[in-house]
Write a protein that binds this DNA or RNA. Sequence first.
DNA 1: AATACGATCAACCGCAATGCT
DNA 2: GAGCATTGCGGTTGATCGTAT
Length: 246
Amino acid sequence: MRTQKGEMKTILKKGAWSLEEDRMLIAYINRYGIWNWSHMPKYAGLLRSGKSCRLRWMNYLKPDLKKGSISEEEEQSILHFHSILGNRWSAIARKLPGRSDNEIKNYWHTNLKKRVASNPVIKGSKQKDKNKSPCFKSHNVEETKEDLNIANDISNNFHFSWTSEDDSSTSSGSPTLNEFTAGIGSPGTVEDLRCFWRELYPLEDLDIRKSDQEMFHDHIFQYSYDDTIAPWSFYNDEYEIAPSSV
DNA sequence: AATACGATCAACCGCAATGCT
DNA sequence: GAGCATTGCGGTTGATCGTAT
């Protein structure tokens, strides 16, 4: 189905993320970095909005996120910074490394809000048992840990290189967190992306996903056929991805 | 055992800010 | 400066789970 502008119109998936979707997003970001949330899902083979992908990554998949319960120190920090900043959750989150704004917001609403309302001067804190949390028991936490390992294995087997204005040397290996969260990235060339998908869906699975490959005929993709040197440099002039050696 | 209810948290939605053309 | 795309934020919702009855 196409819109009047000739763009592909896809039905976007909503609701809980599956393991497979997590795996695809992690693997894609490990390989190409974060270059454009709106366009990324399509190239990663995800039927999700960019917003949804960004949220999933920021709140759950980002490797430097802490997975455990909020500590007493962190709780005191939340109380302290909330008294200064109010409901500016993202600002509070920046003060607590490894915690997302969503996590802090949820923690506030479920643990602290009532307590602060009933007792404005809170000194101590109740340590909640996160093992009782439904989400801790769901597939997401434990299985995603395993999934992150799988994704890391995948990314470790990829050749990843780029150059920048600041650093004319070429870096190889997997990008660090700072590198790929700093916006370094590229959707890759058509052939490069094919290799990426083959890594995710070896042989027999590739046929099943033929419909997904309709995107190779997407108008944006057509650019890449005519520009084989730095096909995606128009997205980010500072970086260009080297042809994959996979 | 079945049901109701509350707690928790991942995900969605709408809007504002920002950047680009 | 207008219009559009993208990103980031905060409020809210809904699914899931544990517990009480």
